[in-house]
């Protein structure tokens, strides 16, 4: 089943006069992990932010369950955001440095006003346990946490609205390798247990290869190749894909 259908998405940054996303069209199917791989500046993070309407697209359409996300009203979009979440690359930048972990998660419920009082705290504890942290973290400041722990909090926050789709924007690339494996384990496990759909963005072909079902290769704002993980890794067609694979030291 098609969960998201993106057609002809364009975004140009006027200041830099570059097309960050130059006509992206693709579909994401329910329950799959779709990888998006490319080098820095190829537009993959911009694409992620466009899909969640965190920045405005120049033109195109993003259909989620018969609704064009680019056309619906702001208040409609705010409700829809519950189903579409994002995990960011830099765990040091993605949490408000002044907030306690409990507040970070409980804020999600404050905004949507669907859970209140004691229940809020219980939900927060439950979420922290889901991501491998405990109740003791409620009162800690994000600045006291390690990168891996912060990333877990970021994942807990994304899970708080019970989303069906999560964009993972380089979620492990700023982590140490032993922590990276822990977080990848957590993401794989959550995806299976909750039947989540991921758009998994990374520059690291190793990471992409280990977690994705399908892969899109992006270069300078354009899609150069897409296919099943098997085809891309075993039988790449495009020169750029080949050079990426050769450079990735995967042996």
């Amino acid at each position: 089943m098609e969960l998201l259908k993106i057609s002809n998405l364009y975004k140009t940054f006027k200041k830099h006069k570059v097309s960050a996303v130059d006509g992206a069209s693709f579909s994401i199917f329910k329950g799959e992990v779709l990888g998006l791989v490319g080098e820095s500046g190829c537009g993959k993070t911009t694409l992620a932010k466009l899909i969640l309407r965190l920045i405005d697209a120049d033109k195109g359409s993003i259909f989620y369950k018969d609704k064009d996300l680019l056309k619906i009203s702001h208040s409609d979009m705010r409700k829809t955001r519950k189903s579409l979440q994002i995990i960011f690359q830099d765990p040091y930048a993605s949490l408000d440095p002044r907030m306690r972990i409990g507040e970070v998660i409980e804020e999600v419920y404050d905004i949507h006003k669907d859970v209140t009082g004691r229940e809020k705290k219980n939900k927060a504890i439950e979420l922290l346990e889901t991501v491998g942290l405990g109740e003791t973290y409620l009162q800690r400041l994000s600045s006291e946490l390690s990168g891996g722990e912060r990333q877990r909090v970021g994942i807990a926050r994304a899970l708080a609205t019970d989303p069906e789709f999560i964009i993972c924007d380089e979620p492990v690339s700023s982590l140490d390798i032993s922590i990276q494996a822990q977080i990848l384990n957590l993401l794989i496990d959550l995806q299976k247990r909750k039947n989540l759909t991921y758009l998994f963005i990374s520059h690291d072909l190793g990471v992409i290869g280990s977690i994705c079902d399908r892969v899109i290769v992006m270069q300078s704002g354009k899609f150069v190749e897409s296919g099943s993980c098997e085809t891309i890794f075993r039988n790449p067609k495009h020169e750029y894909t080949k050079s990426l694979l050769e450079s990735a030291l995967l042996s």
């Binding site: 965190l54 994002i86 993605s94 949490l95 408000d96 440095p97 002044r98 949507h112 708080a160």
Partner: peptide, 26 residues
């Protein structure tokens, strides 16, 4: 432009909430 502000918007926080609770204090 920091990620935590994008994170706030992605969980549906209003502009007023973002400005008063997250931007001004920081």
């Amino acid at each position: 432009e920091r990620d935590f502000i994008y994170a706030e918007r992605s969980i549906g926080a209003s502009d007023l909430r973002i400005i008063i609770r997250h931007l001004i204090p920081n």
